[in-house]
Every structure is written in structure tokens, then in C-alpha cells.
């Protein structure tokens, strides 16, 4: 029994242009981004979005290149919906929800070319692999945007190990993970009782008929994912794109503030 509010109540509020926590339809909840929360990882960030809390941890490790890209390093993303985060998350292998989450966050970051993968080449058959793990510590909806914020911040603030005399050196004076200077954020909308709302909490998500995540940088859309059984009209998608480009300015600023650049 996770809903603290009935559908009728949410619907009534939305019809008056309001939401449970007093937000308007296109408002994010209060959020905080903190980098470097897990210093053993090369990069890390903790994001609180309302009561949703996630950590992204980046490890940079020795690997071998893909056959079709012999001169580039690799990136990989995975997500854990930890059973400690919600009574609805279960132990066991990653659920389809966790896999979708990791893949959508991965697509945005990959498409925006945030990591300079060719610079991760070390020598023939030796490259750096960048693993980003998304850890959901408390669930109250909108994991997509919280995880994209955490992953982007963790990657942008990651340090780079050194490879010397066939040894990986992870401590001491290290440089930064090679980056292209790009950045990506996302905005996730839901359709609840016929209303389009940004940044749903868990209650609202439980009543959403359709969901759309839009990941973008300053200029272009980088990834999208529609979810759930409902649908969107062309006009609704256009409206959501409009809001996304507007809202993402603030998100990018927050990331920059948190990494201190």
C-alpha cells in the first residue's frame, strides 16, 4: 500500500492546477547535487530530488577495446533499485525497470559524447573502461532525472587513474577523466488524469498512464524514452520539448555549481 493519496484527490488537485506538495505542473521538487560523496570511487555524486535519493559511482578500470572500435575506451552503466529503498523493490537480478533506467541514462550520456572515449586508449588492446553504477537509496519517483543528474555530475567530476609500468595507480596526483565539455540533463513528464506534469513523485507515478523522458544538451535532444501503456499527442510532445529546453538551463547550472566550474 504505497499510495498516500487517492487518485480522486490527485485528480481534484490537478484540475485546480495544483499538486500534493503545492507544486505547479512544470515544477521540479527541491533538489540537491553533491559531488565526491564516495571518495574511493574515481567519481561520485549524491542527488536528492524531493525524497528520492540516488548515488552515482564511477570506477575507471583497465579493459580491452571493442572489436569495431579498437582505438577507443568504453563506457557502461548499470542501475540497482536497492531493496532498502522501497518496500516494492526486491532482491535478485536487475528488474526490467532497473535495466530500462540504466539504458536510458546511458543513452543520453553516450549520445551527448560527454566522455572523450578516444582519449581512453592506452596502447594496443588496452583501454580504460568507465563504469557508472546508479544506486537508488530511497524511492519517491522520477529516478530517470535524478540518475541522469547524478551520473552526469559523477562523470564530470571524476579523476583519472594512471597506467605506469604495467600498474594502475589510483592515488596521488591524478588528472581528470577526459571529457568533451558537453553535458546532458533530462526532464521526465507523466500523464496523470489527462494532465501533463513534470517530475512525478511516487504517488503520481503510480497513477500515470504514460511517461516521457527527454534528455538534452544546450542545443539538441540527445535521448528520449516513452514508457507505460498510455500515449501522447504530437502537441503534447511539442509542449514537453519546449518545457524541457527551458528547465534544462537551470539543471545545467546546478550541475556546474556542484562541480564548481
Amino acid at each position: 500500500m504505497k499510495n498516500t493519496t487517492s487518485y480522486e484527490y490527485i485528480k481534484e488537485l490537478l484540475s485546480k492546477g495544483s499538486r500534493e506538495d503545492g507544486r505547479k505542473s512544470n515544477d521540479f521538487r527541491k533538489y540537491t547535487i553533491e559531488k565526491g560523496t564516495m571518495p574511493n570511487a574515481e567519481g561520485s555524486a549524491t542527488v536528492n530530488l524531493g525524497y528520492t535519493r540516488v548515488i552515482a559511482g564511477v570506477k575507471v578500470v583497465l579493459g580491452s577495446p571493442m572489436k569495431d572500435r579498437p582505438n577507443e575506451g568504453n563506457m557502461a552503466m548499470s542501475a540497482e533499485l536497492l531493496p532498502l529503498a522501497s518496500p516494492d523493490f526486491e532482491t535478485g537480478p536487475p528488474s526490467p525497470e532497473a535495466i530500462e533506467l540504466a539504458r536510458v541514462v546511458d543513452r543520453g550520456i553516450r549520445a551527448a559524447n560527454i566522455i572523450d572515449l578516444p582519449k581512453l586508449f592506452i596502447e594496443e588492446e588496452k583501454v580504460w573502461d568507465v563504469y557508472t553504477d546508479l544506486y537508488v537509496l530511497n524511492f519517491d519517483g522520477n529516478l530517470f532525472d535524478a540518475c541522469t543528474l547524478a551520473a552526469t555530475t559523477a562523470i564530470l567530476s571524476a579523476r583519472m587513474p594512471k597506467y605506469e609500468n604495467e600498474q594502475v595507480i589510483r592515488e596521488g596526483n591524478l588528472g581528470k577523466l577526459p571529457l568533451t565539455g558537453n553535458m546532458v540533463t533530462s526532464c521526465t513528464f507523466g500523464s496523470v488524469a489527462g494532465n501533463m506534469i513534470l517530475d512525478m513523485n511516487a504517488n503520481e507515478e503510480s497513477f500515470a498512464s504514460a511517461r516521457l523522458t527527454i534528455a538534452n544538451d544546450e542545443n539538441v535532444v540527445r535521448a528520449m524514452q516513452k514508457g507505460l501503456e498510455g500515449s501522447f499527442t504530437e502537441k503534447e510532445v511539442a509542449d514537453m520539448l519546449e518545457v524541457t529546453f527551458e528547465k534544462s538551463k537551470e539543471l545545467r547550472k546546478s550541475i556546474n555549481n556542484s562541480i564548481g566550474e
Binding site: M38, N40, A41, S44, I55, G57, V58, K59, V61, S78, E80, P83, T91, D129, Y131, D133, Y135, R170, E171
Partner: peptide, 16 residues
């Protein structure tokens, strides 16, 4: 359930 995050150590990426 006791678990270690794959990014928890200073060494390599742990297994999930």
C-alpha cells in the same frame, strides 16, 4: 542482505 557497492573500494570495479 549485506552487499558492497561496485564502486565502494579504491581498487577495481566490484562485481554486481
Amino acid at each position: 542482505r549485506y552487499m558492497m557497492a561496485p564502486f565502494s573500494s579504491l581498487e577495481d570495479h566490484g562485481r554486481t
